[in-house]
Write a protein that binds this DNA or RNA. Structure first.
Lengths: 232, 232
DNA sequence: AAGTGGTCTAGACCACAAA
DNA sequence: TTGTGGTCTAGACCACTTG
């Protein structure tokens, strides 16, 4: 016989079991990789892969020379994908519709956004406003400031949304993301076809390519919209 | 001299550069690991680590025998941590306060929740309602159904919130997470000290240990609350 | 100074999916 | 059947931290 072959996944599973059953209690120092490798009968590389994965998942904290400790508060994460809105609507089983409301080549950027994008006073950007429809019902209002230096001025967004064009064409290196609730004012109520004062979910994103701003967008979803995901 | 040593991070960076400058355009098949290893002058393992990382980040799609392709729509993700609310409030620079509003050992679970938790009709769970304060201002209302089989009935939540106790004491294996906006009704307005009809951000979570339900919680945040994070 | 995790190597075998 | 990624090994050196 040769080897039963110990997989890093099995080492990970066993280590996780020890953490969860308090065999390795929160805050405790666990044996170092070489010891565990001997115990599991595998190479240290395999143990390393398993523990590294548990550390990424928030169960362990590792430091050179300091060793590996069980996290005091295991951090669980929920992740949202920066999706193409069309895909989101289609995944919900609706027919996608899109309507461009306005597209101004150069508009003054409001002060709060200037700060978020690190722009000088009086900076101008292209401003686009559009609505995404699920069937005939307004689903999401897209209100976007776009860096004109990064997008051909001839590029139209009357058929393909700026959302979709950007996801496909402009790589981003970093960004910020904020979620809030807002009451519909008269304008929003008209554009989303809902009652004034309705509670709406709002997503604000700003994205950059290195230190160069790409876009700042506000997505306001219709009433009743839920953003769902699984916990890893 | 021996070797400059090629790191997997440098391979990753170079591959990412080729993707972003369209040297490897979206949808294209890129060279296989062995070729890249020769080109970069490193072991295949190193290339594997780099490309695996780019695949996890959403830039590449890999299939055995199929090879590695550049993703058509690079998927960027925003991650929220399942935080202890106290930490969230303290990180915002406020003094944390907590008030237990009610704690019923056995209450009928409403039908929609029963479905989400896979519970039988007439199922009962412990029901807890509490408010988290930032200074003197209500910050978040916690309304929670808790599986009594997993928590000692003697466990009080009048000082330490169920939120914090659970994060520290009950490991979860999976869960679901939903975000929505809701208008404050009379009860919410009273408990959060806001106007009736104010738009509030709501988080609903259900968590399980294997197939056993742990808890279902609704967190309703005060008006103006923003949930923020960075895009990876 | 010394201990621990982080990484690289060269080689091997396996698992999956396409041809 | 065959090509490609997925993983394991044994050994080595390095980098960061703590004592």
């Amino acid at each position: 016989m040769s080897k039963p072959a110990v997989s890093w996944q099995s080492v990970r599973a066993d280590a996780l079991r020890r953490i969860q059953c308090r065999d390795w209690p929160p805050g405790a120092l666990i044996p170092h990789e070489a010891d565990l490798a001997r115990e599991f009968g595998c190479a240290r590389t395999t143990v390393n892969r398993a523990l590294r994965d548990l550390a990424e998942a928030g169960y362990l904290e590792r430091k050179r020379k300091g060793g590996t400790r069980v996290a005091l508060t295991p951090v669980r994460k929920a992740t949202f994908e920066i999706a193409i809105i069309r895909h989101d609507i289609e995944a919900r089983g609706h027919v996608y519709g899109y309507k461009l409301l306005s597209d101004q080549p150069a508009a003054l950027v409001p002060a709060p956004l200037r700060g978020a994008l690190s722009l000088p006073p009086l900076a101008q950007m292209r401003y686009i406003c559009a609505v995404h429809l699920a069937g005939d019902v307004p689903f999401c209002l897209e209100s976007r400031w776009l860096n004109p230096a990064l997008v051909d001025a001839d590029q139209r967004f009357d058929t393909l949304s700026a959302n979709e064009w950007l996801v496909r064409n402009l790589p981003l290196s970093r960004g910020a993301f904020a979620l809030s609730a807002i009451a519909a004012d008269a304008g929003l109520a008209a554009q989303l076809g809902c009652a004034q004062g309705a509670a709406l979910l709002r997503v604000e994103r700003t994205t950059f390519q290195d230190s160069q701003p790409i876009t700042a967008v506000t997505l306001t979803y219709g009433p009743g919209f839920q953003m769902q995901t699984d916990i890893a």
